[in-house]
Amino acid sequence: MASRPDETGGQQISRRGFLGWVSGAGIVGSFAAGALSTYVFLKPRVTYGEPNKFLIGRPEDFPSGARMAIDTRRVCIVREGNKIAAISTTCTHLGCIVAPSPVGFACPCHGSHFDVDGNVTGGPAPKALAWYKVSLTPSGELEVDKDNEIQIGSYLTV
């Protein structure tokens, strides 16, 4: 299939044009699909660190009034009556771990203060601490999903 020298003929031009379009579509299409695949490939589907969705125990493990910070998971489990919530303990300023204090949370790095619901009360923090979705699994355990931020003040009622 040696290519012919550049002789031109009416019919050949359209044939060539057609072949050119087909080839172009194939190459560009494959390239696009390849680029898309590369993006999908590079975006991790699993991570090897602490999972973002985890079980924390049963509702009865947390007595009313409990404010239990789980440092390894970077959340604080709060229970008031039959309402349960999970508040992030990652400072919204620069990512330090905030410590629960009697009046809310305090960041040891740059002195940000938050109230019991995580609203900023002082310091450089730009916004309130995130609240994560807490749900009850069918087996009766509490599950926190850190990928799912919810509005401040929305509790799970158990």
């Binding site: 299939m1 290519s3 072949l19 087909v22 080839s23 172009g24 579509a25 194939g26 494959s30 390849g34």
Partner: peptide
């Protein structure tokens, strides 16, 4: 050559699609 190019291009696109 042009035919070959077209055929293989489409083939690559097809396999990639699959």
């Amino acid at each position: 050559m042009r035919v070959a190019l077209a055929v293989f291009s489409v083939l690559v696109l097809a396999v990639t699609g699959v």
